[in-house]
């Protein structure tokens, strides 16, 4: 006898809703790639510029927006000046801006001084390489259309190499593109936050030190929150994640018990 799919779906929903409604929180121990991500940013000084690429769209915001929130908080708190752009995905523009602006306001930071939000620019990898040659040829104004030449960024930044790090928050292959065109070609150090689906793909780059730190999925975001002592979206979500994982493990075990039981029964049946 097999569990009908409706029961499986209902169990999944229950396993997620209960911890979210009850607000159960759990202890999370940070792992090395996340600690490296955190330490890489802690090495920077106030006034340093970093460029943050939002390479995702609303469909994967569940995993990546908590990372963006914590990252923005971390950078602004330390006085590092992040420059946000979304070269790779059009659809994240306004969502990303809302997140960044809210955190900036909470920390009393000023847009176009303590942080910049540039939005989308066309050209994909060609634009990435153009930024390596002349940053303002790709972005001469910010998200609202204000020219950048009246702000401090215009004096401090000329090319991509002037940024201390490129930080890619990505749900696809954009990190590989940036590693190829920004890290290899223009020698800008990189760290990244990626969805859990993509995380295992990037471990070869961690070992080769092409990527100096990595946040993988909601767990990576939760570990990052733990390091900064924030009880954010990711940590709250991890309790629900735990219950769902336990359910899935239970279902895997149940499925296998059924499988072996029926296989044994079939074999016995054949022997008779």
């Amino acid at each position: 006898m097999k569990l009908p799919k409706q029961i499986v779906y209902t169990l999944l929903l229950i396993s997620l809703i209960i911890p979210l409604v009850l607000g159960i929180s759990m202890e999370i121990k940070p792992t090395l790639p996340v600690i490296n991500f955190y330490n890489a940013l802690n090495k920077l000084h106030s006034g340093n510029f970093v460029i943050v690429s939002l390479s995702y769209d609303p469909s994967t915001k569940a995993e990546l927006t908590p990372m963006l929130k914590t990252l923005t908080y971390h950078l602004l708190k330390r006085g590092i000046i992040p420059v946000f752009m979304n070269l790779k995905n059009i659809a994240i523009g306004d969502l990303g801006y809302k997140v960044v602006k809210t955190i900036g306001e909470d920390l009393n930071k000023k847009e176009n001084k303590d942080f910049y939000y540039l939005g989308y620019a066309p050209g994909d990898n060609m634009a990435v390489q153009k930024m390596g040659e002349d940053f303002f040829k790709v972005y001469d104004h910010n998200f609202h259309g204000d020219l950048l030449d009246k702000y401090e960024i215009h004096d401090k930044i000329k090319v991509l190499k002037d940024f201390k790090y490129l930080i890619d928050i990505s749900d696809g292959n954009s990190t590989i593109d940036y590693l190829t065109y920004v890290n290899t070609k223009y020698k800008v150090p990189m760290i990244a936050g990626v969805t859990a689906v993509m995380a295992s793909e990037y471990y070869p780059y961690i070992q080769s030190k092409q990527l100096l730190g990595l946040l993988g999925g909601l767990r990576g975001a939760a570990e990052y929150e733990t390091l900064l002592d924030i009880n954010g979206d990711a940590r709250k979500g991890m309790s629900a994640q735990t219950f769902a994982h336990i359910l899935i493990l239970f279902l895997i075990i149940l499925g296998n018990i059924e499988f072996f039981y029926f296989r044994k029964k079939r074999k016995n049946g054949n022997a008779d």
């Binding site: 569990l3 799919k5 499986v8 499925g255 499988f259």
Partner: peptide
Amino acid sequence: AFYITSASYRAFRA
């Protein structure tokens, strides 16, 4: 999420 949970139960066999 629903499909992967269902698949874990139905297809993930040793």
